[in-house]
């Protein structure tokens, strides 16, 4: 697993300091990890842990204060952004605000082709769009001429994944992609990520606060707290036998179905 030619993304000592006036906040503090080809990993943390800042830096939407992000052996500082975004793409938390509400779905998906080097005419684009929508189990006729607000959250998030099927990147950063979706529809979305990995060999990094979700979907988990990664490893290992006191506390605080959770009785 750890042979270096299998590593698609390497994060080394990544640090982000936000400063406003004299106050400095270290959002991400010397974070290092690898993501392998075809692997699903989760970066787990509560709000303010620095996980979203890390995601933005990996997506090249935010400049690190120090440290390196190396994608396929090249530091992304020296890679053209367009070329990088052909390989690394993102999916965000709120499907409703991921779409420009002034455009219909067809236009939104056609815009996706801008990042690709090859140029397509509208007919070719539409053929690929239809195929991608079918890949995510959506009937194209149902959605193409609709505005985002006419669709449900689950449909929109699947369309965001259809966008990934069009671009075919090697790594997808998914920032809380199911947190605004009803739990009974969540499985549909998670299944698509699996499919993406199995068909296109895409590596996926979930950014989430939901430990159950991370445990369910990931091969490996990184636990982030106050800007640092406090524990990382195999999902089974990290969740079932956590070592770090923070991880232990975090997992204890999540209500499950079979373990006692509240210990107030009699106190």
């Amino acid at each position: 697993m750890s042979s270096s030619n299998n590593v698609i993304l390497k994060v080394k000592e990544l640090t982000k300091v936000f400063s406003s006036g004299r106050r400095k906040v270290i959002a991400v503090d010397h974070v290092s990890f690898d993501i392998h080809k075809g692997e699903i990993v989760s970066l787990v943390g509560q709000s303010g842990s620095g996980k979203t800042t890390t995601a933005h830096m990996i997506l090249n939407l935010l400049k690190p204060t120090s440290g390196n992000i190396v994608f396929e052996d090249k530091d992304i500082k020296y890679v053209n952004k367009r070329a990088y975004w052909q390989n690394v793409q993102g999916i965000f938390q709120d499907p409703f605000s991921s779409f420009n509400q002034f455009f219909v779905v067809k236009k939104v998906l056609r815009d996706t082709f801008k990042i690709l080097d090859k140029s397509f005419n509208n007919k070719e684009k539409d053929r690929i769009i239809v195929k991608a929508l079918e890949d995510v189990n959506i009937d194209p006729d149902d959605v193409l001429e609709k505005y985002p607000f006419e669709l449900s959250g689950g449909q929109m998030q699947r369309i965001m994944i259809a966008r990934i099927f069009i671009i075919k990147p090697k790594l997808v950063i998914a920032d809380e992609p199911t947190s605004m979706i009803d739990s009974i529809l969540r499985a549909n979305i998670l299944e698509l990520f699996e499919k993406l990995r199995n068909i296109q060999g895409t590596s996926i990094m979930f950014i989430t606060h939901d430990i159950g979700l991370a445990y369910y979907v990931s091969d490996r988990i990184f636990i982030m707290h106050n800007g640092k990664i406090v524990e990382e490893g195999d999902a089974e290992q990290v969740i079932m036998n956590p070592n770090h006191p923070y991880t232990k506390g975090l997992i204890e605080d999540v209500p499950t179905l079979h373990k006692e959770w509240l210990l107030t009785k009699g106190s």
Partner: peptide, 11 residues
Amino acid sequence: EHVKMAKLNGE
């Protein structure tokens, strides 16, 4: 988020 999306589209 749609602005981030547009950036990722290379606009």
